[in-house]
């Protein structure tokens, strides 16, 4: 009758027999990568010189093409006033192009022309660009007007305009969708597709209400799509279905992305990839400080993904 009373200490004596078939105790892995941990990873894997190389689009392009990685094409690189004076847009520029500052960030100072009529180009919004407009913009880029606080001079990178893969272009009303693949060394960890909307003004920037769509690494299909934290299944502007969309040439995308970090010297990198109509996947940029919002979009923790490929967090 005292069994109930003595149960407290007796229960310690009776240990269940271990026979090797029990489940291992579930250790909840810390799955989410916070910005503190990301910074520590960057300090660990991304050397200063590689970060500088990634930040300079021209240097990054040189390093990538040296490894045979397909990048967006180049029309011209204007890095001083001598070259600027020798440059004549009507003679040297194709019908559609993009001018980018080599050290710009977050799309500042990027000028796009989609078509040409005579000596006048037109932006996507229909605004005409005369030769003097174009020259003035290039000059502003070369003077470092878009290159952050510290840079005094910069290079203007002129590229032919990317024409998106038709199946991808059909998803969006305007603008160029791009893929972001996060890699640790040469292992792709997570991928998302950024789709511009009318609200984002054609820019594939998540802050500006572009759609972030999580892409399954194995199959290359969109698993879920988010706009500003709201889950959606169809594009709000075109009405096309996003969930289940198969990114064309997915294996090639992963292969490209996994080569990018090592080519530039980055251990932890985020590669921005576009799918060109003719050339397939092309690298536009490699980020040394990729954002962590991708975790919310893919519903996966980057830390867990890294642990899965063997990263040891201490």
């Amino acid at each position: 009758m005292f069994e109930a009373l003595t149960k407290f200490w007796r229960s310690d004596d009776v240990k269940p027999v271990q026979h090797g078939f029990e489940d291992l105790p579930l250790v909840p892995i810390e799955e989410i990568l916070g910005i503190n941990m990301r910074n520590a990873l960057i300090a660990k894997y991304n050397p200063r010189i590689a970060i500088e190389r990634a930040r300079d689009k021209v240097a990054a392009k040189v390093a990538l093409e040296a490894q045979g990685i397909a990048c967006t094409g180049t029309v011209a690189v204007i890095d001083d006033h001598q070259k600027l004076n020798a440059f004549k847009p009507t003679r040297d520029m194709p019908d559609s192009w993009a001018i980018k500052p080599a050290r710009g960030s977050q799309g500042d100072g990027i000028l796009l022309a989609v078509r040409r009529e005579g000596d006048v180009w037109y932006k996507g919004s229909g605004t005409p660009l005369t030769e003097t407009d174009v020259m003035h913009h290039i000059q502003k880029v070369v003077d470092g007007g878009f290159s952050g606080d510290t840079a005094s001079e910069d290079a203007a990178l002129i590229e032919p305009l990317i024409i998106a893969d038709p199946s991808l272009a059909d998803l969006v009303p305007e603008g160029l969708p791009d893929l972001r693949v996060i890699c640790l060394h040469d292992e792709p960890l997570m991928a998302m597709l950024r789709l511009p909307t009318n609200a984002s003004d054609g820019k594939a920037n998540l802050h500006q209400r572009a759609i972030g769509a999580g892409v399954d690494l194995v199959t290359g299909r969109i698993t879920r799509a988010l706009v500003r934290g709201e889950s959606i299944t169809h594009h709000p502007d075109t009405g096309t279905k996003l969930i289940g969309y198969q990114v064309p040439g997915w294996d090639r995308v992963l292969e490209l992305a996994s080569k990018c970090g090592p080519a530039i010297g980055l251990g932890y990198s985020g590669s921005d990839i576009v799918l060109d109509k003719n050339d397939g996947p092309l690298i536009i940029e490699v980020n040394a400080h990729p954002g962590i919002e991708i975790q919310n979009i893919c519903q996966l923790g980057l830390k867990a993904q890294m642990a899965a490929v063997g990263e040891d967090f201490k």
Binding site: V114, G124, I163, D170, L171, D237
Partner: peptide, 10 residues
Amino acid sequence: TIQPNSGSQF
């Protein structure tokens, strides 16, 4: 729904 049209980007 709006018909997809890849040419519209230009």
